[in-house]
Write a protein that binds this DNA or RNA. Sequence first.
DNA 1: CATAAAAACTTAACATCGTTAAATTAACAT
DNA 2: ATGTTAATTTAACGATGTTAAGTTTTTATG
Lengths: 211, 211
Amino acid sequence: MPPKPKTQLERQQLRTLIIDAARDLFVSRGPEAVTMREIAKRIGYSATSIYLHFADKEALIRAICDTDFLALANALKSNLSISDPVERMLAFGWAYAQFGLNYPNHYRMMFMTEHPLSDPKLSALQQNNAEQDAYFQLKTIVNDVYLAGKFKPDLTDPELIAQTIWAGMHGVCALQISMANDMWVNWRDIEARLQMMQLALVRGMLKESLE
Amino acid sequence: MPPKPKTQLERQQLRTLIIDAARDLFVSRGPEAVTMREIAKRIGYSATSIYLHFADKEALIRAICDTDFLALANALKSNLSISDPVERMLAFGWAYAQFGLNYPNHYRMMFMTEHPLSDPKLSALQQNNAEQDAYFQLKTIVNDVYLAGKFKPDLTDPELIAQTIWAGMHGVCALQISMANDMWVNWRDIEARLQMMQLALVRGMLKESLE
DNA sequence: CATAAAAACTTAACATCGTTAAATTAACAT
DNA sequence: ATGTTAATTTAACGATGTTAAGTTTTTATG
């Protein structure tokens, strides 16, 4: 008769053990530079054991992304309690950038690498849950600014505004992560670049009186 | 005595033959998915022959980047003749984005991948030559707008302005290339996102009277 | 307690990759 | 003709992601 040598909880624990070990290695060297055998050695298992819990390396990376998206949502959610909507939006964008610059390998994995069809249905995270979905947080924050009537009157699509703000902050972070050592460019200080982007976007999108 | 079975020109021809074949394969599938053996087969040589001309795969990728940077500078230079400085800047940014969206694998290779120390000294391209250096074109264009007194008076560093504009357009392109299939986001039309970014940056950086 | 079944896990092995070493071919100077 | 040497190829190495085949461990039942 079929025994039940491992409870559901134990399976889950080993799963997160793998994820944590892999995540730890990815922080310092990025996913391409880390091998399945190395992850396995780290937790005292054989490399093939990982395949009992993840279909392949990509699936493991996706699972790590899931935990990272949760970590991002967690890192950002404290900003939701800032009372002034514009201040809230600015602080949120700044915190987002800090996350990207502090964890470049994870940021690269999350937002700079194409993954085969990312579907919320396949994720453990809940879409449109402010605790777990940082993009939903962004949408909410931008929408609050919109409802407060702070944007210029011809800006009528809050989600398009949100995607543009995201793109602006992402652009600064992504260039920094990929190109900081490029000697073709005399890079200005990264904080100055972030500040300039926020200044330009705020001035360009908000009504003049609020600048 | 030393024979000379291959002239300098023939060596150069084979070199560009390799680059063109690799470039061709990279266009459709990206560099990671293309193998040295496949490139070699394409030109009727053995894989090891490539190593007579390039130290390793990374060096080959860098050489391809070189030709791509030249192609980018070429694609953008027609905008330099636009008479109005602001119009010129807008058209230039738009053309840059079109290049990125039309050749996503090359754009990824050029601007979204960290390369081990990119030094102009190691490149065949001439830095600060408007024919070959697209970043120099950008700096020049932004500086012209600056000298025409079109920017808001507290924006006093044209190169910082240029890097911010670049980051803005790059952010839209990069998110599109990496995340277009991400179902967490209800992406707005890419052209609308580009237009929104340009509008926000122009409004945020230029004097009000010019919007 | 003994044993059969099946889950958990490991060892071996495979195909493929980038790359290097050894072997081979071909072209020139003498 | 022949030896030297560049050009090129074939063989091979080590590493990687992954799969197949084995081994150990656990537990429900006789």
